[in-house]
Simulated assay, not measured.
Amino acid sequence: MSVSRATGADPDTLVVSGWSAASPYGLGAAAFAAGVREDRDAVRPGDRDLGPYERAGLLPDFDIRRVLGRKGTRAMDRATAIAVATVGMLLEEAGPGLAADRPEAVGMVLGTGHGSVQSIMDFTRDSLTGEKPYHVDPAAFPNTVMNRAAGQSAIWHTLRGPNTTLAGGAPTGLLTLSYAARLLRRGHCEAVLCGAVEEFSAERAWLEYRARTGSAHRQPAGPLGEGCALFLLEPYGRALAHGRTAHASLLSCRFTAFHDPEDAPRAVTRAVTEALKDASVEPGEVALLVPSDTGGPLGAREDAALGAVFGESGPPRLRLRRLIGDTSAASASLQLAAAVCVPDGRRRPVLITSVDPDGQTGAVVLRTGNP
């Protein structure tokens, strides 16, 4: 293992050297960080169709053409626009040299729930209600494909490295971080933008509501949110060479599954203990917990598992869902963003956990600050 003479750190350590977010607090990392640090509620009544809900965590005043311009946005769906805008903000923070010199060296791993639910349902409805099944808008078809946001973001910003779309429920954001780490460690690229996006639509709201209603094991129906959080993951040595600061080091990722909802605490406990072991971090060293905060029986089981590992008087827990709503596939990425922006610059481990009612759990350990 080589060690940097300037820092004493391993230059191959994977670090988050940049991040940005589009959230109900507004566009950009600064807006998100301010909202989280102030513990500000961003869920409010909307001026659009919210489906079965009265309140939602919506991006304030997000107009696609105003944010991205008129060119190339006529048929762009909301999820794609949010992702493209967030990538642009992250690249601006990282500096113009990130993708300009060797665009093939920069990959992208973007998570999503289903892609744009509204686009899928609108296109399907048009094919059923039109005079002919093929009397549909061909320009709208790309929005029905799950990897639309990732592909369009790469095209828009000239990222020519590996491009991957993942869908894994609530832990999707943690999965993208793990996938990005494997791409880097196996030499498929030199840097990766990773994270997840979710749009709000009345169509998604109704699907979420119907999926939860009548199920004793799913989290209760509640306000939904939307947003995107993206991270620049790269080796520490590369970040230093390009003048970027490490916000956090990736120590470990662990994922488990459960079939019976009653087994969720066991799955969460296993993911957490194995992640801590892989990171060589003792439970008493963890300074902050960022759980998925799903509420209902599932949320109680996640809390019980964390209580079993850390004790009821363990590290403080940052609960994001109550502030911005349920952002579904984007929730874990926004949890990661909260974990990165809340600490005060000291080097300390933080743990992010996620659990999905379909049986997926995940745990990621980061160490904030420089390696």
Results as ranks from 00 to 15, higher is better:
223 P>Y: 09
278 D>A: 15
234 E>K: 08
322 R>L: 04
119 S>V: 11
253 C>V: 04
221 A>H: 04
291 P>Y: 05
356 D>M: 05
112 T>N: 04
286 V>R: 11
162 P>G: 13
249 S>Q: 09
137 D>S: 15
28 G>R: 09
214 G>E: 00
38 E>W: 00
204 R>L: 15
211 A>T: 06
126 D>I: 02
322 R>F: 00
246 A>G: 04
180 A>G: 07
177 L>I: 15
168 G>T: 11
125 R>F: 10
342 V>T: 15
301 R>C: 01
211 A>V: 06
203 E>W: 06
368 T>N: 00
82 I>N: 05
368 T>R: 07
180 A>V: 03
61 D>I: 03
123 F>H: 13
261 P>I: 05
207 L>D: 13
279 A>P: 07
251 L>I: 00
180 A>Y: 05
293 D>T: 03
369 G>W: 13
219 Q>N: 12
254 R>L: 03
2 S>N: 14
196 A>T: 08
145 V>E: 01
114 H>L: 15
201 S>D: 02
318 L>T: 11
357 P>K: 00
260 D>R: 14
176 T>A: 11
189 C>M: 09
322 R>W: 02
370 N>F: 08
223 P>L: 11
30 A>W: 04
356 D>S: 11
30 A>C: 04
223 P>V: 07
347 R>V: 01
270 R>C: 13
177 L>H: 10
197 V>M: 01
279 A>N: 01
366 L>G: 03
307 G>F: 07
194 C>V: 09
299 G>Y: 03
130 G>Y: 04
366 L>Q: 03
109 V>R: 13
115 G>A: 07
57 G>A: 12
344 D>T: 10
14 L>V: 05
95 G>R: 00
18 G>F: 12
321 R>K: 15
98 L>G: 08
301 R>F: 01
117 V>W: 12
90 L>F: 02
114 H>R: 12
288 L>V: 04
3 V>F: 09
201 S>W: 03
151 G>M: 05
5 R>M: 08
251 L>N: 00
223 P>M: 14
11 P>R: 01
201 S>H: 02
232 L>I: 10
141 F>Y: 14
191 A>R: 11
110 L>D: 04
270 R>D: 15
90 L>W: 05
169 G>L: 06
306 L>Q: 01
82 I>W: 07
183 L>D: 01
111 G>I: 09
166 L>S: 06
81 A>W: 05
51 G>T: 02
100 A>I: 10
328 S>N: 12
332 A>M: 05
93 E>Q: 14
60 P>L: 12
193 L>N: 03
133 P>Y: 12
185 R>W: 06
290 V>T: 12
144 T>F: 08
271 A>C: 10
160 R>P: 06
242 H>K: 12
179 Y>V: 02
118 Q>A: 14
335 Q>C: 15
297 P>S: 12
